[in-house]
């Protein structure tokens, strides 16, 4: 059996996190291909149902990336996103998912290196957890 390759969805806000991902690209920083990015206007647009949909579809991890705290282009969207992430982390336990499969990070547009490192770090955590139990059920 080949090594477990997790499937991770990352919701990135357009002003900072998505920009940081592009910066990582222009710096040719190499990171894991297990992560696929969804552009959202502000991390405040991150919605619990989006993460649940991802898990339901078989994602092994969900990542939310917003501007640095205090640097949100819509004032506090990232703070609100953080609250939802924390809320959902607790809820995940109830449906038998490890809360560590969901995480949030704050990056600025120039932090390409940090972005790449965060992605690798999170992918490492998810890899350690193994395939999502939901995925196993889907396969069954």
């Amino acid at each position: 059996m080949s090594e477990f390759e997790p499937k991770i969805i990352a919701f990135c806000c357009q002003y900072c996190a998505y920009n940081a991902a592009d910066t990582a690209g222009s710096m040719r920083l190499q990171y894991t291909p297990n992560v696929e990015i969804v552009l959202i206007p502000c991390s405040g647009r991150f919605d619990v149902i989006l993460a649940l949909k991802a898990f339901q579809s078989g994602a092994d991890g969900v990542y939310v990336a917003g501007c640095l705290e205090g640097g949100c282009h819509f004032l506090d969207g990232n703070i609100r996103a953080k609250k939802r992430v924390v809320y959902l982390q607790n809820e995940l336990k109830k449906i038998g998912l490890e809360p560590e499969r969901l995480a949030m990070v704050n990056v600025s547009a120039s932090q390409g290196p940090q972005f790449a490192a965060y992605i690798d770090e999170f992918a490492g955590v998810v890899k350690g957890l193994g395939p999502s139990p939901i995925k196993k059920q889907l396969a069954a």
Partner: peptide, 19 residues
């Protein structure tokens, strides 16, 4: 409804990225 980033659009995208 958030135009251009509707729930339906984002949910469809998320699902399609994975499935």
């Amino acid at each position: 409804k958030f135009q251009f980033f509707t729930d339906e659009q984002l949910l469809a995208k998320v699902e399609a990225l994975i499935v």
